[in-house]
Computed example of a mutant assay.
Amino acid sequence: MPGTLYLIPNTLGETTALNHVIPDHVQALTAQLSHFVAENAKTARAYLKLIHAVHPLARPLQEIAITELNVNTRAEALAGLLAPLREGIDVGLLSEAGVPAVADPGADLVRLAHKEGIAVRPLVGPSSLLLAVMASGLNGQSFAFNGYLPTDAATRTKRLKELEGRSRTDRQTQLFIETPYRNGALLEALVAACQPGTLICVATDISLPSETIRTQTAAQWKTALAGERGPDFHKKPTVFLLLAQ
């Protein structure tokens, strides 16, 4: 009988207060696993050290198998990552931040696990996208995550206008993210591209002590930026949301 693929949530940033964001039973289950698939082995080990401080690991850290799955992993290598599961060994899929397989390369492995009849069990943990929708005050009945937007300024502006139009037509909240050091450029592009009444939410460092979540119209953001009263989000993980009025 094959093992179970557990989808292990991670924190959304550096913190030592695991109990604030990761349920105790999730920590306990994670501590019992001997095999993991993770985006980065080094940071996965650091996370397991935090787990160990609360729930001692079933094996010494150096004996735990951690295989990497990231944007550089070739599609033909995915099947090999399921080998322990085929042998009846439970495996944890661990994201760099938040929940696995959402805006995360682990989705391909989960799909392959289903194809092979391997049980997949998602565990409770923080999702920056859902937390941002909750706190934004925008439409939580209908929303779409669009990943990263184009880096080329003209193409990005065109894409933003398309998303604003879709939001207006469907009354749908649009979510997207950016490489943290380009957060400022994206907010400026949003303000320039959107209609003055379009609502824009900027949610930064969600669940961390430095968390800030702020929803204003594009016109209000324009005034704030002109007065150098923009958000403190340089090099900080941020979710952007918009809802056209």
Score class of each variant (00 low, 15 high):
G3I: 04
I8D: 06
N10Q: 11
T11C: 09
N19C: 03
V21N: 03
P23T: 09
D24P: 00
F36S: 10
F36A: 06
V37H: 13
A38H: 04
K42A: 13
T43H: 12
T43D: 10
A46P: 00
L48T: 14
K49M: 13
K49P: 00
I51K: 05
A53F: 04
A53S: 13
P56K: 11
L57E: 07
R59A: 12
E63W: 04
I64Y: 02
I64G: 09
I64S: 06
T67D: 15
E68S: 12
E68N: 02
N70Q: 11
V71R: 15
V71S: 15
N72L: 02
T73Y: 10
A75R: 08
A75H: 10
L78W: 07
A79V: 14
P84Y: 10
R86I: 09
I89W: 02
S95I: 06
D104H: 06
A107S: 14
L109W: 13
A113H: 05
A113L: 05
E116I: 10
I118D: 06
V120F: 10
L123Q: 07
S128E: 07
L129P: 03
L131S: 01
V133E: 04
A135Q: 14
Q141R: 13
Q141S: 06
S142K: 15
F143N: 05
F143V: 03
A144V: 03
F145D: 01
Y148P: 10
L149W: 13
T151V: 15
T151G: 00
A153E: 14
A153P: 07
T157M: 13
K161N: 06
E164M: 11
G165C: 04
R171S: 11
T179W: 12
A185I: 10
L186G: 00
V191R: 09
Q195L: 11
A203Y: 06
S207P: 01
S207V: 04
I213F: 02
Q216K: 13
Q216V: 02
T217Y: 09
A219S: 15
A219V: 01
G227H: 07
G227V: 01
E228W: 02
E228R: 13
G230V: 12
P231D: 10
K235I: 05
F240L: 11
L241T: 04
L243F: 03
A244H: 02
A244C: 05
A244L: 01
A244T: 11
Q245Y: 01
Q245N: 13
